[in-house]
Amino acid sequence: MKKYQIYAAVFWVVLGLFVSVYSYWLGLGKVRSPGPGLFPFCLGVLFLLLAVAILVKAIHQPAREQEGPKDEDTPVNLRKLGFVVTALFAYALFLEWWGYQLTTFLTLALLFWNAGYKRWIQVVGYSVAIVVITYFLFTYLGVRFPPGVFRLLGLD
């Protein structure tokens, strides 16, 4: 939809401005001895120019030619999407605190439930099996997982 393309272009313009100003503060130096900000500054200005061009194009383009999200996006699916994104952020937040086994089990259970598995035995069974398999597989491959609560229990 046209308005989303315009929102995105406005975001790019603001981002381009920020990058240009921030890089300018970093110090441009001279061509003979370029400062840390010269390369990002040039890129920031180019980014800004492109963003303005995209914004102008988005405003002038007729709505029917606009590509992007269509109206068929249903709120139900967007709710599912929001749920998954929240579960992922929660995973990142609790991983080091609760440890791999517990956090992964809870996240997987939520994801399976959200994906449409409603029988608890399936949700728990799949989640436990995957936690056990991935734990041993990735530990074998040299990945070190955070023990979390298992360290407190003296199990890890």
Partner: peptide, 9 residues
Amino acid sequence: PLILLCCLI
């Protein structure tokens, strides 16, 4: 869920 877990790991 499997793909997401692999990404997280």
